[in-house]
Nucleic acid binder design. Structure first.
Length: 275
DNA sequence: AAGAGACCCTGGATGC
DNA sequence: TGCATCCAGGGTCTCT
């Protein structure tokens, strides 16, 4: 469910609460939640360990510990990290952590796609191969051009590749393409310099704005205090099939690319494949 | 190399 | 009301 802005929102909420606390107890309730590190190893590594920082890499949440290794959490589609909410009776509670000062952190995940593990060798491929952070200074228009050069793959698919750019998901990929007036089916290698610059700006703009509004809640996303994000109303094309384009008034279309919805304005976003 | 589709799950919305 | 179908913000895998 969460993309970069939602994960960043969660990290910002957890950071002041978790930093400096000691993990007194960790429990893991579903085998799919701990695919890489056995629960016994996790419990042993986490017990009486102190959290020194909380950060984000792509869509991963990193819990930095005084005694290494660190722990990473990926929420995938439906995962939630909830603070001090009584969730023991929640049938979808997959793990929980009791910390010093009576803090409880619950990992609730209906679909059990989410997972966590210790960041130790061998580091799983998904984390190890993460691409550039789109809000960092190393993500320039030039860098985007290099990443897309000669690619015979649709822009939408390239934007979703975490090993190229880390953190963009299905919602913000559609939004960025609309802002940049790029048709999502255009091959990455066929974007003109002007379009690459526009797309670079659009990606950073939409991610920054969504972070400012604490993410998008369509159904599942919740901040650690249980409240939803506020970017949902600001979405320009995502989920707006049949509504008028906010720029030109033409009806917004939904197409399916690689099994995922893309929303676009057929008037503003010309398919420029082949020039 | 790259695209299409299946798959991992559960639940909500929609249609008949 | 009940049942079937479709859909979902992620990511990996196989087959072509």
């Amino acid at each position: 469910m969460p993309e970069l802005p939602e994960v960043e929102t969660i990290v910002r909420a957890l950071r002041p609460v978790l930093t400096g606390k000691t993990i007194l107890q960790a429990e893991f309730l579903h085998p799919r939640t701990t695919p890489h590190t056995p629960p016994a190893r996790l419990k042993e590594a986490l017990k009486n360990n102190r959290i020194v920082a909380v950060s984000r890499r792509g869509k991963y949440i990193l819990v930095h510990l005084e005694n290494k290794p660190d722990m990473v959490v990926h929420l995938r589609m439906s995962g939630k990290l909830l603070l001090n909410k009584e969730s023991l009776s929640d049938p979808h509670l997959r793990a929980f952590f009791r910390l010093s000062e009576n803090i409880v952190l619950n990992f609730v995940d209906t679909r059990t796609f989410g997972f966590l593990y210790l960041l130790e060798e061998p580091i799983p491929e998904g984390f190890r191969s993460l691409g550039v952070e789109p809000l960092s200074s190393s993500f320039s228009a030039k860098r985007l051009a290099e990443l897309f050069r000669n690619r015979k793959s649709p822009v939408k698919a390239l934007l979703l590749r975490q090993d190229l750019i880390a953190g963009i998901g299905n919602i913000y990929a559609s939004e960025a393409c609309w802002i940049a007036k790029v048709h999502p089916a255009t091959f990455g290698g066929e974007l003109e310099e002007k379009q690459l610059k526009a797309l670079h700006r659009a990606v950073r703009k939409v991610l920054r704005q969504a972070v400012d509004l604490m993410g998008t809640t369509l159904n599942d996303f919740r901040r650690p205090d249980g409240t939803p994000g506020e970017y949902g109303n600001a979405l320009l094309v995502y989920g707006r099939k049949g509504e008028p384009c906010p720029r030109c008034g033409q009806t917004i279309e939904r197409i399916v690319q690689n099994g995922r919805s893309s929303f676009l304005c057929p008037n503003c976003q010309h398919e420029t494949r082949g020039g």
